[in-house]
Design a protein around this nucleic acid. Structure first.
Lengths: 173, 173
DNA sequence: TCGTATTTTCAGTATTTACTGAAACCAATG
DNA sequence: CATTGGTTTCAGTAAATACTGAAAATACGA
């Protein structure tokens, strides 16, 4: 009974710590990843103070990263009646998490690249030397590909989980 | 004639600068992204010194990032006979670039996550409380999904460009 | 309205990551 | 086997990023 809750606490702490470490590897700051891990495995929504205590971080840090997670759409604010504090609750459905992350990364990584490539392709259009044509062609190919990726991302993000699975099964037997 | 080569230089510098800035957004260091942009748009392979001069960075920096790009598989070393220097040449085919990046990111981002999730699922197996079961179930779902993503990545990485396009067309009209 | 609980901001500081420049190393050549 | 041209390493430094803690702002209830 107590042993069970100890084991759980240990396993969960391990998950939070490891997920935090992974986060840094993918350019997400450690605290944000830890908070996400914590909330994903929390039975109920947590307050800022609970997050602070659990992870031993400052209020400012907890606050900033909670709000950042809300901005990503991975965490919701929950209000409990008769309580003035805000509570935070993570999306737990893995497919929804995936869609959210994919959409956000597209917005932050793919779309800006597309902008750059379009501009460069345009700026180099009609530079009438072999090098100029090669450069412009390279820009065009990059642009075309990134555009394709962008559209694919949109399509996938619009899928229901079941449909995605079915599709994958069909494709890859 | 001279105007054309000026315009090209300008467009290319712009691309290198912008690609570098984008790089930082996706957790790649700026110099590495800049070198990659430079080599992708270079008519021939460049030496370390040429890279240093073009980007105005130190030898150490140029060297480290060139070798890192080689480690990623995005850049090849070229030797010219009668010349003791090493030259560097980037892969220019967008599909090959994509495959390479996808494979590398899978290795660096997906596989470690899978390891963590498997361990956490295992460690929490059989914790016989409602919270314990919920935690373990969450770990399992994450694991299952990441495994699925991993397999998909492998499949896509094994595709030929033409096949991928065809498939996308079929799927999404 | 005032006092209190809570959230938000931010200047200062700590930590991490990237870069420089020079020394050490290595390999080809006379 | 010494010299030269080139590569690699790395200690020190600069720059970027993350975090703290406390003050300021805001929202609520009496």
């Amino acid at each position: 009974m107590n042993a069970a809750s100890d084991r759980l606490k240990e396993a969960r702490d391990e998950f939070v710590a490891q997920w935090g470490a992974l986060g840094t590897q993918w350019g997400i700051n450690r605290t944000m990843a830890q908070i996400h891990a914590l909330l994903m495995t929390a039975p109920q929504a947590l307050s800022t103070d609970e997050v602070m205590e659990e992870l031993e971080v400052s209020r400012g840090n907890a606050h900033t990263n909670l709000k950042e997670l809300v901005a990503w759409g991975l965490v919701r604010i929950v209000v409990k009646k008769g309580d003035r504090r805000e509570y935070f609750e993570a999306e737990k459905d893995v497919w929804k998490i995936f869609i959210t992350v994919a959409r956000e990364r597209k917005r932050r990584e793919i779309d800006p690249a597309l902008g750059v490539l379009r501009k460069c392709a345009e700026d180099s259009e009609g530079i009438d030397t072999p090098e100029g044509r090669a450069f412009c062609e390279q820009m065009r190919q990059l642009e075309e590909f990134v555009e394709f990726a962008s559209k694919m991302a949109d399509k996938v993000a619009a899928m229901k989980h079941g449909f995605a699975l079915q599709m994958a099964a069909k494709l890859f037997g």
